[in-house]
């Protein structure tokens, strides 16, 4: 039970990053800057929280809710800014995506460190965090059922909602169809009158914004407001999760919980040695590699990465 709750709790952080990255990758951009972007989103969100707490040191239900909203908006804004920088470099200037992504991660993690240690006042985070983790009012009344489904903070439900909405948008709407076409074959999309550049920018920025929420969630909900440099690792795992779920946001909800379970399993299994626990922590990565191998061996078109992933697009290329 505790394992399940823990898995859900950490899994949500993966889920944000994963859905954000899926949206970005669907536009044909392998954004290795996600770890940096998640960190930066966390920094933005935390900054918003600390500012809010300085305005309302004792927030009530209403100002608390507003604080969450404010933090979410700012976190998304911060993350999307880095996403925009990434898009500018890779879309407009057609720089190499891998190299740019890694530079974004370096920069984002560094800047986050600077903000969190030099600028943001973290003293009130524990109080603020209680608003993030507050469970739905009727959770307690429903026993174990309530605990599993209703005991989580608001950002948990937001993540699941975003994943479901993303899945719906990608598969059931015009916008989603167009976006997938951009990632599969930008020349085709362009010839069909789709503004490829705009789609790539918007997808990357929205994806980054969503990923940034993962950072905020990790600090404020999963870690209950204590600061830690673990976001980068979460970001890389989120990228792994994208592969694991074969670019499907709805599947990534379950995938995130599974990864979450594997991530924390070591702490819950009693009677194993320290060293075995260290090995257990490897599981998500090993599982991802196995999925990667299996999908590439089967080679079914529908389970492959977007065909134009990682390639720049220049219309007048001859």
């Amino acid at each position: 039970m505790a394992l399940l709750l823990g898995a859900i709790s950490i899994g949500i952080a993966f889920l944000y990053g994963c859905v954000g990255e899926i949206i970005t990758e669907k536009s044909g951009h392998l954004n290795l800057g996600i770890p940096g972007i998640m960190s930066f989103g966390a920094a933005g969100g935390c900054m918003a929280v600390s500012i809010w707490m300085s305005w309302f040191p004792q927030p009530n239900g209403f100002t608390g809710a507003l604080m969450i909203f404010f933090a979410i908006v700012i976190a998304m804004l911060f993350a999307a800014t880095l996403g925009a920088l990434y898009s500018f470099l890779t879309v407009s200037l057609r720089c190499n995506q891998n190299v740019t992504g890694l530079a974004i991660t370096t920069f984002g993690v560094g800047f986050t460190m600077f903000l969190m240690e030099g600028v943001v006042d973290r003293t009130m985070f524990a109080t603020a965090s209680t608003f993030f983790t507050a469970s739905l009012p009727f959770a307690g009344a429903l026993g174990w059922f309530g605990e599993i489904f209703f005991s989580h903070g608001v950002m948990t439900y937001l993540a699941i909602a975003i994943a479901i909405i993303s899945s719906w948008v990608l598969n059931k709407t015009r916008v989603g169809l167009n976006l997938r076409a951009v990632g599969e074959n930008p020349a085709t999309a362009d010839a069909a009158g789709i503004n490829v550049t705009a789609y790539k920018y918007v997808a990357t920025c929205i994806g980054s914004g969503i990923a940034g929420l993962g950072g905020l969630y990790y600090i404020m909900d999963n870690l209950s407001g204590s600061w830690e440099y673990g976001i980068e690792a979460i970001g890389w795992l989120a990228i792994a999760l994208v592969i694991f779920t074969m670019w499907r946001p709805n599947l990534s909800i379950l995938g995130a919980f599974l990864f979450g379970g594997l991530y924390i399993a070591a702490e819950f299994i009693t009677g194993v040695s320290f060293s075995d626990k260290a090995l257990l922590k490897l599981l998500p990565y090993v599982v991802t590699i196995i999925v990667l191998i299996i999908t590439s061996v089967i080679g079914k078109k529908e389970t492959q990465p977007p065909a134009a992933l990682g390639l720049p697009y220049f219309r007048e290329e001859r």
């Binding site: 015009r174 169809l177 076409a181 999309a189 010839a191 069909a192 065909a307």
Partner: peptide, 20 residues
């Protein structure tokens, strides 16, 4: 175009409606 501009993993209808 001489080289067809179609998305392989889409259906005919999805390709036709693309961008509309």
């Amino acid at each position: 175009h001489q080289h067809f501009k179609l998305v392989d993993v889409f259906t005919a209808a999805q390709n036709i409606v693309l961008g509309v």
